[in-house]
Computed example of a mutant assay.
Amino acid sequence: MPKYVLTGTYCPDVLEKRAPYREAHLNRLAQLKAEGKVITIGPTRDLTRVFGIYEADTEAEARTLVEADPYWENQIWTGYEIHEWIQAF
């Protein structure tokens, strides 16, 4: 199955603004990981960017997975890019 790399940005004051959505976000990611749709995901140390790797049949499906996340729906993630990734090893 193709893999897709997510890079994105967080809103200002992310620690405070994410609090109401954090549990739903983490629960959803745990479910997607169990389903094999998320390989890894997390923020940069400075909390300005998010990085993740999704497995999906198409880029459109990968985008749907990102856009259904509570962080995207509630503007915690403020922008993102998706690129198909070829895992060399």
Rank of each mutant, 00 (worst) to 15 (best):
Y80I: 08
Q87S: 12
E73C: 09
I86K: 11
V66Q: 00
L29R: 06
P12H: 13
L15E: 15
A60V: 13
I82G: 10
E35N: 10
W72M: 06
I76N: 02
R28F: 09
M1K: 12
E81F: 03
E55V: 14
F51Q: 01
P70G: 04
N74P: 00
Q75W: 02
C11K: 10
E16Q: 15
T40H: 00
A19T: 13
T40E: 10
K17A: 10
T48R: 15
P20M: 08
V5A: 14
H25R: 11
K33F: 12
V5G: 08
I41R: 01
T44V: 04
I39Y: 04
H25E: 12
A88N: 13
F51M: 11
D57Y: 03
E84W: 06
R63S: 12
L6W: 04
Q87M: 05
E59A: 06
L29Q: 00
Y21C: 10
N27P: 02
W72R: 03
Y71P: 07
I86T: 12
L32I: 06
G42N: 05
T9S: 14
E61D: 13
A68D: 15
Y10C: 03
G8K: 04
V38C: 06
H25I: 02
K17T: 08
E73P: 00
A34E: 15
Q31K: 14
P70R: 02
L47M: 15
T78H: 01
F51T: 08
T58D: 06
D46R: 07
L32P: 00
R49A: 05
P2M: 10
E67C: 10
T64V: 10
H83A: 14
G36R: 02
G79N: 14
T64F: 10
Q87P: 02
E84Y: 08
A30Y: 05
E61W: 00
E84F: 04
F89L: 15
P20E: 09
N74D: 02
A60R: 12
Y10T: 12
I39R: 12
I76F: 11
Y80D: 06
K33Q: 14
N74M: 07
R45S: 11
E16C: 10
E81R: 11
E84Q: 15
T78F: 08
R45P: 01
E23Q: 14
G8S: 08
R45Y: 11
E61N: 09
A30R: 13
N74T: 06
T48P: 04
G8V: 04
E81M: 04
